[in-house]
Write a protein that binds this DNA or RNA. Structure first.
Lengths: 240, 240
DNA sequence: CCCGATTTAATGGTGTTACCTTTCGATTCA
DNA sequence: TGAATCGAAAGGTAACACCATTAAATCGGG
């Protein structure tokens, strides 16, 4: 019955302050006190303290005696912490976060595809081909919502099949980027044929265990993102 | 005066339990209770609770009423959390962690070099060339300790100069891999000339702002890690 | 009278204890 | 088999002593 995701008091406070810091509403050097937080959110000192400890462990604040809780500079943040990523993705940090994540995708996904070609299970190999075909079908029929789901599943599968748990840990984030990009209208209304081909190329290479080809195909799929990332003016960038 | 790093009670408990989980001494599904922790470490309930909150925020445990604190499966861990990485790097997880990180380096560093060629400041450009030259001097004279320091500085600089804060956040980890690898005797006693050339190639490309060349040079520098990662038998892999 | 050094006092996190509430697995009983 | 009950353990509140830190106040020497 509680508001989505805010199971306990901590989450509410954490969410609020985490957002404020990552969105820049609280600037580095600003200080809070536990009492401040208690009053503002109507929570006990215990809750305030435990929340601060979590924020501290994410690198968003430091806590010192007599001085209070100090907001840290962005350089100290655990920028790979999923919550930090989410917060930055829907606040002021969105722009740099999207750029960073896209660049990270360009770095990681080709290697993940390569690793998947070596390490994927039999089921994963058949599934990746299925998903490639499914994307073609949905894409050609213009069923964008379903197409997006398949796209997310495709990239998630490869990251997980890579056998590298650090790659796999990026799956949720990549999904968020794909979805967020569509929401923002950065995608063409109908997937371009090249994108469909590219996905099927990757799928075939992975299924066949050809790691080098899978890597190259994924790199082709991600396209010339270097140029695409600078000007978001043309509606034709299809860098999934 | 306190023992390195264990400033407060939390850190001691966190360190101990975090290690036990990431090292596999505590298996997924195992449960603890706060009382258990209080007794074992002689700390108050508050400290036990706050420590658990941090572990929970790292995905290492979940806490449920009536059931206690349950150790999570590795799939739920925040594998990018620096502390999780450190712990895995000096325990049972070392092997998979080193492989994962090396694969991550191969993915990220070429793109970081490319980005650095585009975004580095004037000072950073001159410094990267200096470091390349310094590595040659030290390498040829066989001053391994200093060479390693310069090597770490070189890779750190590029990651930071990339302008991508997620790349920059990996600097400490890359440094740990470089140092750890040397400690483990995985490096040749004298840097091979190819490695020295490779570093200077990267440095020159970055300094000249040639992103494509910097990317390729870094990829060459990292070498054919795919093969090198499988058998650690030959002492000749120089994949920095 | 001014400035640096030393003492003092206020502040706010650290750590502890005690207590009540809520949840939910397990036991019991129909 | 299923429903009512019990109780273990976390969730949450409150009040405390403690102590590191900082800033103000005081003091002393030039």
């Amino acid at each position: 019955m509680s508001r989505a995701g805010f199971e306990n008091r901590h989450d509410a406070v954490l969410e609020a302050i985490g957002r404020e810091i990552t969105h820049g509403d609280l600037a580095p050097g600003d200080t809070l006190t536990l009492e401040h937080i208690q009053n503002r959110f109507g929570v006990s000192r215990t809750v305030a303290r435990e929340t601060m400890r979590i924020l501290e462990s994410m690198g968003l604040v430091t806590s010192r005696r007599r001085v209070g809780i100090t907001v840290q500079d962005a350089a100290a943040w655990n920028v790979f912490d999923p919550r930090v990523i989410w917060w930055r993705l829907d606040g002021n940090g969105r722009d740099t976060q999207l750029r960073s994540l896209t660049e990270l995708r360009v770095a990681v996904e080709p290697l993940a595809a390569s690793a998947a070609a070596r390490n994927a299970s039999a089921e994963q190999r058949t599934r990746v081909v299925e998903l490639g075909a499914r994307m073609r079908g949905l894409g050609e029929r213009g069923l964008l919502a379903d197409f997006l789901d398949a796209d997310v599943a495709f990239h998630t599968l490869l990251l997980e099949a890579s056998g590298n748990e650090m790659f796999a840990a990026l799956a949720d984030v990549v999904a968020a980027v794909l979805r967020g990009r569509t929401q923002l209208g950065l995608m063409p209304r109908q997937p371009v044929p090249e994108a469909l081909d590219a996905h099927e190329n990757v799928a075939r290479a992975v299924a066949a265990g050809q790691d080098r080809r899978a890597e190259d195909a994924m790199r082709a799929l991600l396209g010339e993102v270097r140029e695409a990332m600078v000007p978001p003016d043309t509606g034709q960038l299809s860098l999934d």
